[in-house]
Design a protein around this nucleic acid. Structure first.
Lengths: 262, 262
DNA sequence: GCATAAAAATCACAAAAAGCCACATTGACG
DNA sequence: CGTCAATGTGGCTTTTTGTGATTTTTATGC
């Protein structure tokens, strides 16, 4: 029989990759034995793999540099992602570019319904495509080995065919002149996505402030919101205000995070 | 008959996703039994999914249909997948279509290196894209909610631009006249993939034998190998032999299955 | 290499929760 | 007043969960 916890466990593992039995028991508020019992049929069916003390999604144990980057500063990214998810309504149309933070955003959007999502990230597409009546449009092509996303002309052409209410971008660096990136194709795609939406939000953790980006993506004009975890340096804050962009600083509160990750 | 409480329950679940019977009873100010009675016709109609202790909207609770199909007959599919993986060498070029069995194949290919993979399945792409120096070409477009794969003209055009050594197909049904499918677009894509490879392998578990498929994909001519878990009915075996296709039956007991005539 | 301790998994059994059925009560309506 | 549908209640069954004893696995010391 399938219990509600089964889907809860799958959902947790989808975002975390792996978890110990003890951690799952703690998070779900049940005993170790109960988690073991829940996990058993899922491992037998091959959905989950088990190692002594922990479980993980079958196809995902020991993976990719991208997954590794997902773990860096994960708590901050998740808080940022949750804040952005709060800007999205059921039935909304979105564009998301490739990035660890936008992947977190996708994970925070798993409870939304009837979303229309346009992206070039297979990670984001995979998370949202089979859920809650969402429609997902994925730009195909040659996938980058690091991120599993498609770039290049065909991706640009594909994205150009859509118009959405909200574009959510991650960036490689932010200085007082605007948004910067390290990769030409990523920057081109980001620029395009900015033109294809009514509203534009940028997600970035504080480590990106003041970095020296290589390629300019855009200024702050036309950016509606910058969502981040720590207040930016004064120069950037001033530039944001001057451009009329809202600065969203979600509070890192521990009591109200059901996921518990911090 | 639809009572007011029915719509109330639906409304609550629309925002909450899932709820326990007790919570609903409490919120609606009626007894547990009444809620159970209300919920019953809705689950029977398929609007709601019910598990011990809770109800949820049909899509919200439980696993995605694709995941569910991945669990059905998983052991057999994995054995089949391992056998097919044995037909693939490092550096090979492959096409894989969307299907639970081909997704298993992708998982069995995670130790191969420098593969060139062309597919329309985001699941397969995700597994192989960020690994071992593989190159993955993914057909984009609107993703099917059930499988997370792209179909349609743009996918066909994309696939048509490649030529590989080996195409690995899953099919919906096999009868003595050849390979069948239930979906027109899937069948069209499969047909195309068959023309874009030097060699062609078909993976299928024994439950597909003798099923009544809707759309014809291809005959056995030109199929180099059919990999399955149980011997097919005589009529199909005869047709295979007549067409010169090899039949690969990996042994379920063996840990290390031989590549078998591939 | 083997013994030992610690962590984790498994098993069996009792308690709790949830579900189900039959029957009584209520209230609307002709 | 009788009928009928809807709801609540109590008894009973089924499922699920937690606990503690026991076994297995993993790590560690000699």
């Amino acid at each position: 029989m399938l219990s509600k916890r089964h889907s809860d466990i799958l959902k947790i593992l989808e975002t975390e990759g792996t978890a110990t039995i003890a951690a799952l028991a703690d998070r779900l508020g049940v005993s170790l034995e109960t988690v073991r019992r829940d996990v058993k049929p899922l491992t037998e069916a091959g959905t989950l793999t088990r190692v002594h003390g922990a479980v993980g999604l079958a196809g995902q144990l020991g993976e990719a540099p991208f997954q590794k980057r997902m773990r860096e500063n994960a708590a901050a990214k998740q808080v940022i992602a949750r804040a952005v998810a709060g800007m999205v309504r059921d039935g909304d149309s979105l564009m998301l570019d490739t990035g660890t933070t936008t992947s977190f955003v996708a994970r925070e959007l798993t409870d939304h319904r009837r979303l229309t999502v346009v992206t070039n990230s297979t990670d984001i597409a995979r998370i949202l495509a089979t859920r809650n009546g969402n429609r997902v449009f994925l730009a195909g092509g040659a996938l980058r080995p690091d991120s599993g996303a498609a770039f290049g002309k065909s991706a640009l052409d594909f994205i150009a065919g859509f118009r959405v209410r909200l574009t959510i971008l991650s960036v490689g660096a932010v200085d007082e002149t605007g948004l910067m990136d390290y990769d030409l194709e990523e920057a081109e795609l980001a620029r395009l996505m900015l033109t294809r939406a009514d509203r534009r939000a940028v997600v970035t953790d504080h480590t990106k402030f003041g970095r020296a980006g290589l390629i300019r993506v855009a200024g702050f004009d036309g950016i509606d919101a910058l969502v981040t975890d720590h207040p930016p340096p004064p120069a950037i804050a001033t530039a944001l205000t001057a451009a009329g962009a809202a600065l969203t600083l979600p509070l890192l509160r521990c009591e109200n995070t059901p996921a518990g990750g911090g």
